[in-house]
């Protein structure tokens, strides 16, 4: 375990060095990330100028959920962006060299890229997160602080696990250019808003089938004691473990049917 973590950090560090060679890209991607997340915030602000609350959620409550999606995205993009390379790695045969190195293939794939937009996401998501925490109506007891620390720390793992799971489709779809995982990424962005606004089917998908809501909405309900069942948010660590296990399972299943490329 410790060896794995250390090697993961080594691979990411090396990737960071390679990435920093393209400094122009870093700035463009950072600005793009700031714009993208900033626009989402302006959107919420414009709506809440007109109405005081949606389904009992006030502006800063929703900003908290929104900022969690941005933070989660930032962490996933910085630490595990490699998941998005799977379609290419698997279907153009690049996995061959990964499989003959003595380090977990999944961890090698995950650490094979660093998203330069991650920092922008973290900066903006972090600012919104702090602003939201200051403004929400919550009394900060030690128990609540501990709960918040736990569920917020586990939230990004939910996204990373689901990213792995959806990107493992590469083993089955067999094309290096697939919009499939991207469609699910967009599904995940539905978790930017309180789950109560959706119909039953969408709620079930986001909380059970592909539990994207555990990266933002459920942790927020647990900390703010809002929504119909705030205790569900305490399951965030379980959801995180479940998503990571699903991802690992899919990757292992995929490896047994990996065909490399050519003869």
């Amino acid at each position: 375990m410790r060896r794995n973590l250390w090697l993961y950090r080594r691979c990411l560090g090396a990737q960071l060095r390679a990435t920093l060679e393209y400094e122009g890209d870093f700035w463009i991607m950072s600005v793009a990330a700031l714009l993208t997340q900033g626009m989402g915030f302006v959107f919420l602000w414009a709506i809440f100028r007109a109405i005081p609350q949606i389904n009992g959620w006030r502006f800063w409550d929703v900003v908290l959920i929104y900022s969690l999606v941005a933070l989660t995205e930032g962490v996933a993009v910085l630490l595990a962006q490699g998941a998005w390379t799977m379609a290419v790695t698997v279907n153009l045969g690049g996995l061959d060299t990964v499989l003959v190195r003595p380090f977990s293939p999944l961890l090698q794939v995950l650490s094979s890229q660093i998203g330069m937009n991650g920092l922008g996401n973290l900066v903006l998501g972090g600012s919104l997160f702090v602003a939201a925490l200051v403004h929400v109506h919550a009394t900060w007891t030690p128990v609540r602080i501990a709960t918040a620390a736990l569920v917020f720390a586990c939230a990004p793992l939910v996204k990373i696990g689901l990213n792995i799971l959806t990107n493992c489709s590469a083993f089955w779809l067999k094309t290096p250019w697939s919009m499939f995982p991207f469609a699910f990424h967009t599904l995940g962005e539905l978790a930017r808003y309180p789950l109560g606004i959706y119909g039953l089917a969408v709620r079930l998908v986001l909380s059970v089938v592909l539990p994207y809501a555990f990266m933002s909405y459920f942790p927020a309900t647990a900390v703010l004691s809002l929504g119909s069942a705030p205790w569900l948010g305490l399951l965030t660590p379980v959801a995180a473990a479940w998503c990571l296990l699903l991802g690992r399972w899919a990757f292992r299943r995929g490896l047994t049917r990996y065909e490399s490329s050519g003869s």
Partner: peptide, 27 residues
């Protein structure tokens, strides 16, 4: 046992490099 196996073998694919593309060879 891929990892254990990898410790005992060396592999070179002529058409594909096992080096990190954007890193110095030493790294």
């Amino acid at each position: 046992h891929r990892i254990e196996n990898a410790r005992g073998v060396g592999v070179v694919f002529g058409q594909r490099t096992s080096l990190w593309w954007d890193l110095p060879v030493r790294d």
